[in-house]
Design a protein around this nucleic acid. Structure first.
Lengths: 147, 147
DNA sequence: GATTATTGGTTGCCATTGTCAACTAATTAT
DNA sequence: ATAATTAGTTGACAATGGCAACCAATAATC
């Protein structure tokens, strides 16, 4: 493994920490944890999201998903209804409050990144976004062996 | 907030998940969690690391650091000695096993990123590393208000 | 030099979090 | 009509990390 790869990996790990769980403590995030926000983001993305949709998106078992959705519901960010077409599935959706919260968190997250994002010109932002996209794609791509 | 910033933030959040806790489950990582590996990396970086050094590096309280170091010691990745100069502080260092484990994890982590890293030419790697470095620097920089 | 304050580390107790397996209820297949 | 499947929930549990009280060693003060 080259030194280049080695360094990149360390940077990724560090970034994963700084922008992940670490970024979601303290008073910033409407009292939501990182994973709660991940769930919220998925629920926002797919309107009328079933529990297992949440589970899949955030890599939890379905019981874990039940629990995180319950928590979000208790906090008022989400509402859960029985589907009218199939009485087994839940339709989870953001409430007004949930939408406000995600918007607020997005602002706060941006502030956290501070000057850098503000000062980025469009080309640099594209460049970084492109890098991240390929990395994410690589990580998402189903792998055969190892791990 | 511009759309550009918005998209970048989502990418960062996704990357933080994929390369953080998520990357460290399953059978890949010598049975270590993400935070355990973070601690291990810090201990490797600063030879004869005191407990509070670990705490500071990974954002835990000192009791949390005690716990994670104990866990690593029990698993045989780390040894803990009393400092000869100051009987209060611990000197934590990697064992042979710990060094092997970090190397193995590094390999596995690289494999996880799969083809992308392998195919990166030096210039692209530098570009990505540069982006991540500025983002990390921005996140590390002490901020005054908000959050 | 003895006493007090400080500092590094540990521990008991606790809350949070997420898994597993067993369960219920609704739907689909036979 | 009955059996099999599927979505979701729940009880019991293990892992994790914080808080505050604690111990022991060093540093500061008299």
């Amino acid at each position: 493994m080259s030194a280049k790869t080695h360094g990149l990996i360390d940077l990724l790990r560090e970034a994963a920490w700084l922008f992940g769980n670490k970024a979601f403590d303290g008073s910033c995030c409407e009292g939501l944890s990182f994973m709660e926000y991940q769930a919220l983001a998925e629920i926002q993305r797919s309107e009328d999201c079933p529990i297992q949709g949440v589970a899949k998106a955030i890599g939890f078992t379905k019981s874990g998903a039940t629990r995180i959705v319950d928590r979000l519901e208790r906090k008022g960010h989400v509402r859960k209804r029985r589907s009218p077409v199939d009485g087994r599935v839940c339709c989870v959706a953001l409430t007004r409050r949930g939408k406000d919260a995600t918007a607020a968190i997005m602002r706060s997250y941006a502030a956290y990144l501070g000057d850098v994002l503000k000062e980025l010109d469009v080309r640099s932002a594209k460049r970084i976004a492109g890098s991240l996209e390929s990395l994410i794609a690589a990580a998402r791509r189903p792998r055969t062996a190892s791990r």
